[in-house]
Design a protein around this nucleic acid. Sequence first.
RNA 1: ACUGUAAAUCGCUCUGCCGCCUUUUUCCCACCCCGCCAUCGCGGCGGGGUGAGAUCGGGAGGAAAGUCCGGACAACACAGAGCACCGUACCACCUAACGGGUGGGUCCUGGCACGAAGGUGCCAGGAACAGAGAGUGUCGCAGAAAAUUACCGCCCCGUAUGGGGCAAGGGUGAAAACGUGCGGUAAGAGCGCACGGCGUCCUGGCGUAAGUCGGGAAGCGGAUAAACCUUACGGGUUGAAAUGCCACGUACACCUUGUUUCCACGCCCCGGCGUGGUGGUGUGUUGCUCGCACAUCGGCCUCCGGGCCGGCAAGGGGGGUAGGCAGCGCAGAAUUUCGCUGUGAAGCGGAAUCCAGAUAAAUGGCAGAGGCGUGUAGCUUCCUUCGGGAAACGGCGCGUGACAGAAUCCGGCUUACAGAUUUACAGUGCUU
RNA 2: GGCUCCGUAGCUUAAUGGAUAGAGCAUCUGACUACGGAUCAGAAGGUUAGAGGUUCGAGUCCUCUCGGAGUCA
Length: 128
Amino acid sequence: MRTFSTNERLKSRKLIGRLFREGNSYIAYPLRVVWLPVQPDDPALATFGEARAQLAISVPRRTFKTAVQRNRLKRRIREAYRLNKQLFYEKLTAADQHIALMLVLVAKEEVPYATIEAGVQKMIRKFP
RNA sequence: ACUGUAAAUCGCUCUGCCGCCUUUUUCCCACCCCGCCAUCGCGGCGGGGUGAGAUCGGGAGGAAAGUCCGGACAACACAGAGCACCGUACCACCUAACGGGUGGGUCCUGGCACGAAGGUGCCAGGAACAGAGAGUGUCGCAGAAAAUUACCGCCCCGUAUGGGGCAAGGGUGAAAACGUGCGGUAAGAGCGCACGGCGUCCUGGCGUAAGUCGGGAAGCGGAUAAACCUUACGGGUUGAAAUGCCACGUACACCUUGUUUCCACGCCCCGGCGUGGUGGUGUGUUGCUCGCACAUCGGCCUCCGGGCCGGCAAGGGGGGUAGGCAGCGCAGAAUUUCGCUGUGAAGCGGAAUCCAGAUAAAUGGCAGAGGCGUGUAGCUUCCUUCGGGAAACGGCGCGUGACAGAAUCCGGCUUACAGAUUUACAGUGCUU
RNA sequence: GGCUCCGUAGCUUAAUGGAUAGAGCAUCUGACUACGGAUCAGAAGGUUAGAGGUUCGAGUCCUCUCGGAGUCA
């Protein structure tokens, strides 16, 4: 299922706030990964549906001035996640875990798609 | 032909695979509600709603940007008046409206032509272009003086250094009291005259008007209004995070201000109550003043000044939530196109079309082909001062651009922009 | 998506439209000291965020651009 539909997007303002306060993080260049396990009794879990993880993508405005640049990079990250998430889902299903996930771009200049895809694959390998 | 400037138009196309957003296209499945039929029961038909899926369509810009103006739309406010504040500023027209646009006028700058010259005409570009003759202020340094001025100077009288007249020449400055010439005079000066310049007033022609071409009168004492200001016109405030509804959730806990004076009349248990008026306090009315509207209540104590408690009005501060629906793309100041009217902005009429709606925010990723641009082998032709240069064809490589991403919607303005095309103007070269 | 405001030396700031933009701290050089600090003397450092306009003259007035900050249900 190489999809990326509404219930796979992290949209709850509240959950994002908790993610940055309480979440764990690690670096998989050119990405910084912030993640937080969602407990089974959490009401936000209802929005997940069949999804194992909800993802949000962030590209800092400070380094990328124009909206065109930021949109392009966010699209590349989303595409790379969509094409590579299957292995990630297998890992999560094995552990019976739901998580909230944020990918933040830390590169200082525009990176091509191949680099981002490598970063996403690395992120999935390094995930505990 | 090339280069530059200005204006206008465009600002990559196609195919395959995998994805994203969207719906009153159609279909299918599940659940819920209503009606009818059938009934022991299972059920069948029709309509509506919700959710998931399939399918057919649609899916960023000329600036989507900056948020500089103007509207639509919405909420709140509003008996009204004055002042303040803000904005606009040659005239007419266009427009829903505008600080936008179109046309015209005036002035300035540059070029060309004509003329002895003052100047006139044509072309191109520019102008926040009302008023400095309503008032106030300011004008550093220099200079005698920066707005009713006299340093050097010129002239007359006296002759010693004084008294008086003048503003031509010199000098300072961004700016020095209409310009040139002649007369005039002691010397001079619009003091007079000729020609010219400048506005003001009266007046005639043309023009809707700004204005322009004449005639006459009295004149000529700087600049600055993107200094205060004057005049005319316009402006209620806030903006989709507005606003309405649903769901979840919390704290009427705390602090501050106000809660009243006098007069008249009536009642009675004779110091209280009621009614009316007046002022005070608080709040609202964009700011201020007037005016208007609302609140100004009850209890207890008292040394009769007032104090305390509750309620009410308003403000401060704090706590909770931060999910959904509507607003929101809607047949309209709509888009495309044709015709007519108008110098033009634009208007009127006909035909066709319905054309993005996301919300941590869709319109993408990979591969291939074409076109375009660019680099470099090669080859052909032409020119040659034999160093080389130009053009066409073409294998291979690279890039596909620049500025830039809708967020309620329109009309403008401004700013950014690789490249392509067209038109106009200017320059250079070649040919005739 | 709006609204409001700010920009002067490395930092904090001053300047009524008037000459070459003035201070303090920091920096550098010299003096003092055995050395350092403190102190004294001197120097350097400004496209007044950028561009255009008004004016004789602009940090100041006006317009546009750039950068930054605050605020809202």
